[in-house]
Simulated assay, not measured.
Amino acid sequence: MTTDTRHTPTTRTVTTRTIEYAADGLTMIGHLALPAGVDRRPAVLVGPEGVGLSDVERRRADALAELGYVALAFDLHGGRYLGDPEEMLARCMPLLADPDRMRGIGHAALDVLRAEPRADPERIAAVGYGTGGAIALELGRDGVDLRAIATVNALTTGRPGEAAHIRCPVWAGVGSEDPIMPPAQRDAFTAEMQAAGVDWRLAVYGGALHAFHHPTVEHVVRPGVGYHPLHARRAWRDVVDLLAECLPVTD
């Protein structure tokens, strides 16, 4: 475990640590970001894209800590970043087809976050991207008491009837040109949420591709994948607004 204390441009002090924990038969290496102070704060799980935990999600956890949240960016692949698309798909496709495995990964990270003394275990939200977003949704379908779920690029549907266990608002964001989450998948997702009586909303970002929020994908030559800086900023603001509504920080 390593610790780094630094001053941010907002003058808040953020402390970060790497956290090792077991999940899915692997030793996961998460990134914990703590806000200034010693009091308990609302907490946020941050789930990464299928390639795995990167500096993109670590910076988002740090940004949430700057806003006053305890944030844990969780791991998917035992500390590995799967930059090769074929390797990533070989691991993620079976995972996405297995809700119980996804829930196991999510619960392991949630246990780490709940055990952090600065985190209020009664006030937790989950924010996820791609595979990490699918895991956030599965925690909701498993009946976990979350204050909010936000997911980008992960309009995944679950087992019949289980969306009724979701106990919090759900926000989902997707690019209009995302071939992995096409209109038919959007319709299936929103139909599931509506039938379950979930408080849901969907933001479709015009012209954006898959993983539009992830800066490093601008170097990936792969059909349907691309970074969109403007919509990335908008999606982040939408996530922060959801947290402010459902999980406010009170100094």
Rank of each mutant, 00 (worst) to 15 (best):
A150M: 04
D145F: 00
A148H: 12
N153A: 15
T156Y: 15
T151Q: 09
N153R: 04
T156M: 15
T156R: 13
G158Y: 13
I135S: 03
D145S: 02
A150P: 00
E162D: 09
L146W: 01
L137W: 09
G132K: 04
L146G: 03
R159C: 05
L139G: 07
G158D: 07
P160K: 14
L155S: 07
E138T: 08
T157H: 12
G133N: 10
T157V: 14
R141H: 04
T131N: 13
A134M: 10
G140D: 04
P160E: 15
G161K: 13
A148V: 03
L155W: 05
A134Q: 03
R159M: 09
D145H: 02
L137S: 08
A148I: 06
G132C: 07
R141W: 04
L155R: 05
T151L: 11
T157N: 10
R159F: 04
T131C: 15
L155Q: 10
A134Y: 07
T156D: 09
T151I: 14
V152W: 06
E138F: 09
D145N: 01
A154L: 09
L155P: 08
L146A: 08
A154C: 06
I135V: 12
G143V: 01
T157E: 10
L139W: 00
V152K: 00
G161D: 10
G140Q: 07
G130L: 03
L146M: 06
G130D: 11
A150C: 07
R141V: 00
N153Q: 14
R141Q: 03
L146N: 02
L137T: 07
G133W: 04
